[in-house]
């Protein structure tokens, strides 16, 4: 037995890692878009609300593509998992979809009229469009790793309410606060004045929320889903991942206390990445666990695409990922610096 799980360095195992890369890419980029919007409904001044929109306006669209590309990757590399989760989690998935539609529409149309009723309606849609996905992503991933009633053909036998169990719900809180930490850190980087002051408090609250929800998740999971800890004890080197997650949290608090506000976002990025990796470690090689019979679980080995498809997609990813990262970095450079709520981008 090696120090890392068997099969991690096969083509399928590599695709498991790549799926992780896309999830991390999403939570690091669109994560701060989501998190930066949570305070929206608590902001009373029009000026402050516009500053929230402006902080993410030029980049959110590109960030959301991580989700779209990631969804495509899941479809291409693990089609059965895509089919089983999207059809099984029907209402939950559509709630995320409608929320994201609302978010996109609010960005573009909010400032097209002067009416405050119009604007506040879109502000609420925008807020919901960020809060709902932030929670539901955690709930969905939680259900996949804890287990859902899928049969041998990967058909889901449950309802929307089957998904609302303690561990996945706690994981929904984790993802919510993880994005909140990241969003707060991003606002510290991008804003000034009253929004900046708000972000300081917001960052403090969210890091506490994150720690509490992580503890809660683990307490519940030890009782209800002990199998999620098996990989760590079989391959103790994996304990490095929760450790690094913890380091991220400590760093976040330190940077906040030390007043290095433009650096906090790196710490929350670290927390995002290692939270995702942690879930991946706990679950490997299972992508979607069956609560009916463990034999029916969808793993990277029994639910992956053909070797040819995985190889082609790997080549495409190796070619295009660096290009994407290159121009994404360029875009962030173009838009570096603080924003204000004086004028709206849209």
């Amino acid at each position: 037995m090696g120090i890392l799980p068997d099969g991690l360095f096969t083509l399928q195992g590599l695709w498991f890692l790549l799926a992780g890369v896309f999830l991390i890419g999403y939570s690091i980029t669109d994560g701060f878009d989501l998190g930066s919007a949570f305070p929206m409904i608590f902001m009373k001044k029009e000026h402050d609300r516009i500053a929230l929109y402006n902080s993410v306006a030029p980049v959110w669209d590109g960030n959301e593509v991580w989700l779209i590309a990631g969804g495509g990757m899941l479809f291409a590399a693990f089609p059965t998992v895509y089919a089983a989760s999207f059809s099984g989690f029907y209402i939950a998935i559509l709630l995320v979809l409608w929320a994201l539609i609302g978010r996109a529409v609010a960005f573009e149309y909010r400032n097209k009229r002067e009416s405050m009723v119009w604007r506040h309606t879109f502000d609420f849609i925008y807020w919901l469009g960020n809060v709902l996905p932030a929670i539901l992503f955690g709930v969905a991933v939680g259900n996949a790793v804890v287990g859902v009633p899928i049969d041998k053909d990967a058909v889901y036998h449950g309802t929307f309410f089957t998904l609302l169990r303690p561990v996945p719900l706690a994981m929904g809180l984790v993802s919510f606060f993880m994005f909140a930490m990241h969003g707060a850190a991003y606002l510290l980087l991008k804003t000034e004045g009253s929004v900046f002051e708000m972000a300081k408090k917001y960052a403090g609250i969210s890091v506490v929320g994150y720690v509490v929800s992580v503890i809660l998740t683990n307490v519940l999971a030890m009782a209800e889903a002990p199998y999620l800890y098996k990989n760590y004890f079989t391959y103790p080197i994996l304990f490095a991942i929760p450790l690094l997650m913890f380091v991220g949290v400590v760093l976040y608090v330190y940077l906040l206390k030390a007043g290095k506000y433009d650096k906090v976002v790196y710490a929350s990025g670290l927390v995002n990445a290692f939270t995702v990796l942690n879930v991946a470690c706990a679950s490997f090689p299972v992508l979607m666990r069956s609560s009916i019979n463990p034999e029916y679980s969808l793993t990277v080995f029994n639910a992956s695409s053909s070797t040819l498809t995985l190889t082609v997609m790997l080549i495409v990813t190796i070619i295009f990922m660096p290009i994407v990262l290159f121009y994404t970095r360029y875009a962030y450079k173009v838009f570096s610096g603080k924003v204000s709520g004086e004028k709206s981008y849209y």
Binding site: V65, I68, A69, G70, G71, G72, M73, L74, F75, A76, A77, F78, P79, T80, Y82, A83, A84, F86, S87, A154, S305, S306, T309, V312, M313, V316, T317, F320, M321, V324
Partner: peptide, 19 residues
């Protein structure tokens, strides 16, 4: 459908996102 054709149909969707 997704389960049946994902091996082929998923790839262009993923490449669309990426490229």
């Amino acid at each position: 459908y997704s389960k049946f054709v994902g091996d082929i149909f998923g790839a262009p969707l993923a490449i669309e996102g990426l490229m």
